[in-house]
């Protein structure tokens, strides 16, 4: 999954933001792009439709810099959430080191969250990944909305294995970095 280059002393890790359409995956990446120090990030690439829905993926490289001689870089990707883009989603999961599942907290999106989670497991299985060992965290986004489901119910539906999870309002940045920190650390630990 990850790539370590002992010659150029680089480590590259791939983190994918997954979840149903309009749950806030791209918003997470945009927030990270706008908030990290400019010298630590590359270009934010978005392959989107004219209506700004993700068509293929968003991509943002973030560089931790040199630590004990190794330059560590995270490649952050989003997938298109809409159900009919599954072929694209599966492609983006290739070589993944860690997953952030972004759930939409709104009551009317619970079925979509659940379907997307099932779809994630199916696509991971196609590549031979074991979801129980792959670094993964869950973000419950849109916590500021009046129709947000309570946290206990979200956890019961989407997080039966008690993965690390975070409440978020990605449009305001709440929970975005906490989520990214958690998944990055899980990925780094998994290298050892």
């Amino acid at each position: 999954m990850s790539m370590i280059n002992y010659a150029s002393r680089e480590i590259n890790c791939k983190i994918v933001y997954y979840g149903p359409g309009l749950c806030g995956k791209t918003t997470n990446l945009e927030y990270v792009y706008n908030k990290v120090r400019p010298e630590t990030r590359g270009k934010l690439i978005s392959l989107a439709t004219e209506t700004e829905r993700t068509l293929f993926f968003d991509f943002l490289p973030v560089d931790l810099g040199s630590i004990r001689g190794f330059n560590t870089r995270f490649h952050l990707y989003t997938v298109p959430g809409q159900v009919y883009y599954n072929a694209s989603r599966r492609l983006i999961l290739k070589g993944v080191d860690g997953v952030v599942f972004v759930a939409d907290s709104q009551a009317e999106r619970m079925d979509a969250n659940y379907a997307s989670m099932q779809n994630l497991y199916e696509n991971l299985a196609e590549y031979g990944y074991d979801p129980r060992t792959l670094p993964m965290v869950i973000q419950y986004n849109k916590r500021d909305l009046a129709n947000a489901v309570n946290l206990g119910e979200l956890r019961a539906q989407l997080n039966p294995d008690s993965l690390a999870d975070f409440e978020a309002v990605a449009t305001k940045g709440m929970g975005v970095f906490d989520t990214l920190k958690a998944v990055s650390k899980l990925v780094i630990k998994s290298l050892g």
């Binding site: 990850s2 790539m3 370590i4 002992y6 480590i11 990270v32 908030k35 990290v36 120090r37 630590t40 973030v62 931790l64 810099g65 630590i67 004990r68 001689g69 190794f70 560590t72 940045g173 970095f177 990214l180 920190k181 990055s184 650390k185 780094i188 630990k189 290298l191 050892g192």
Partner: peptide, 24 residues
């Protein structure tokens, strides 16, 4: 096995840098 030859202490330093980089 990617991490086999990373120096001891590398993980802690990376975690600290993650905290510094992904901070508000």
């Amino acid at each position: 096995t990617v991490g086999a030859r990373l120096e001891a202490g590398w993980l802690t330093e990376v975690e600290d840098e993650i905290d510094r980089l992904f901070a508000e």
